[in-house]
């Protein structure tokens, strides 16, 4: 399980970083989404990985830590909102300037 989660986080981070470095806005937005998913999984794993352990004290001998789950929830909500903002801005820039490149034309220093 540790190998599965760790390699999933690593793969998604690598994909995200690669896509963020692309020239068009659509891959960049996708890359940011990948990165935020990787981060969510990482936060989840910071409470230690346990199978079949509800985050409720008293049900099982060793309940899982509820705090990372709450943190993940907050992080998901925030990254979802941010993705919505960046998609809107990307669409606005696409129709305002006529292309969806991330870098503007070379401008004066």
């Amino acid at each position: 399980m540790e190998y599965l989660v760790a390699s999933a986080i690593g793969l998604m981070t690598a994909t995200g970083v690669y896509l963020i470095l692309r020239r068009r806005t659509f891959p960049v937005v996708l890359g940011l989404t990948f990165l935020s998913h990787a981060v969510n999984l990482f936060i989840f794993s910071s409470g230690r990985l346990k199978m079949a352990a509800p985050p409720i004290v008293g049900r099982v001998a060793e309940p899982s830590d509820p705090l990372p789950q709450a943190l993940v929830l907050t992080a998901i909500v925030i990254s979802f909102g941010m993705t919505a903002v960046i998609v809107l801005m990307a669409v606005g820039a696409r129709f305002g300037t006529g292309d969806d490149r991330v870098a503007p034309e070379r401008e004066a220093p």
Partner: peptide, 8 residues
Amino acid sequence: GERLRAGL
């Protein structure tokens, strides 16, 4: 347009 892209 251009400012939205800078914002991006």
